[in-house]
Design a protein around this nucleic acid. Sequence first.
DNA 1: TCTTGACCCTGACGTAACGTCAGGCCTGAT
DNA 2: ATCAGGCCTGACGTTACGTCAGGGTCAAGA
Lengths: 250, 250
Amino acid sequence: MKHDIDTLYRVNEFAELAGVTVRTLHHYDRLGLLKPSRRSGSGYRLYGNRDLARLEQIVVLKFLGLPLKQIRDLLKKESGLPESLRRQRRVLADKRRQLDSAIHAIETAEQSLKPKQEPDWNLFKKIIKEIEMQNDTEWSKKYYTPEAQAKVEDRKKLWSLELQEKVSRQWSELFADIEASLHEDPAGPKGQALAARWKELLAGFTGGDPEIQKGLNKMWADKDNWPELRRQEYAIKPEVQAFIMKAMGK
Amino acid sequence: MKHDIDTLYRVNEFAELAGVTVRTLHHYDRLGLLKPSRRSGSGYRLYGNRDLARLEQIVVLKFLGLPLKQIRDLLKKESGLPESLRRQRRVLADKRRQLDSAIHAIETAEQSLKPKQEPDWNLFKKIIKEIEMQNDTEWSKKYYTPEAQAKVEDRKKLWSLELQEKVSRQWSELFADIEASLHEDPAGPKGQALAARWKELLAGFTGGDPEIQKGLNKMWADKDNWPELRRQEYAIKPEVQAFIMKAMGK
DNA sequence: TCTTGACCCTGACGTAACGTCAGGCCTGAT
DNA sequence: ATCAGGCCTGACGTTACGTCAGGGTCAAGA
């Protein structure tokens, strides 16, 4: 449609359309990351639909934490995206580990603050030193034995990927299967089979310990043990949860 | 001891002693965060042992992600630390969720890149919209009335399929992270952070019931409750399970 | 004593991704 | 013609330092 092609927006309109600020558009313009396809006679920025598409790509990559310069290059060459994603994923994973460490340190600190009044700085120091030592160790592992380490790392990653996919898929499939069986009798064979799969997967997480299983079973039997809040937090669909509850109860 | 009290270091020495850079000390000096207790006649910074203690506190709080200004205030008042830690923990938890989302998005993107050659921007957009919706929901919880919330919550349930995936993804990620940390000390901070995530996720499945949690915790304490046979039946790798066992035991 | 090299000082710009004025032009409606 | 509201281009602020640049200080060797 000609209309679509010709539609031009001024900054404010365009910014609202795309969910960014005007200043951001100015910024991207100056960086050469996103220049409006036209300018009015008086210098107003005029953006078209192609600009919108590009901006959306930018927003996506920015969400992934890529720096604007890199985004610019990526969108220029249109290649190298896979490699960038791999790198970025590793970067983010590292950041997450850092965060975990910090969170753990805070939790420990809060524990030590409860009984006393004074913060236990030595405890802090200890925690951080450990973390630093770890990082150094990992770092050396990354850079010192590239040969021998490579194989192990590769296999580990393969395994881990495989495992990841497998577990994810199992839960997803189970959710899907349950949803597809909502009309069935939870106490019937199909329902029981689903419940068994649920238990099995969960047992995988709990290590299959009989005591824990007992506790879990007791819990499944008691509806009130599924508090509303938690349900929403983890977002298991209510129908699915209701179904599996019934199936477990039987 | 007089010797300890009198020992004075010049910047470089002091910096190496504390594991920071000279520039950092300059910076803290200017900010008023850490001023050397003395200056030589020619203006050289001279740091003492009390300065070292303070710097260590600063380093610790900085590791937790607190901004320098806040650190300065905290060390001035010496109170309000508990509240700051609570806030900071929430901030870090939020960041971690953000990272999880981004990592998930990247993984999905990589999947979609495998078969095709072209990046699937629409898929990207979808993912990000979901994540934003999530965040909006959480955000609104803090600021909107419960009634106004209900509507948003309803909409959220529609998307729960994706959120289901999120749950299994969290487990997968946890497994992957554990596997990547097998060489670490389960009793160390990293191991403990992983154990904490494990507990947290498990709590999601158990509905957060305190009784059951208690039982579980008791269970974790007893290594022998993880039978060898069962372990192999499920998708959890033995090393992973062994690691988390040890981490829980701590 | 002079010089040399190592160490110290302050000041100032650069970084990432915009937020936030400030001063001034453009446009559409009254 | 005027006025509100949108648009323009600077330009400084933010965070926690890194990295010169230009210039003193100090102890040791020639």
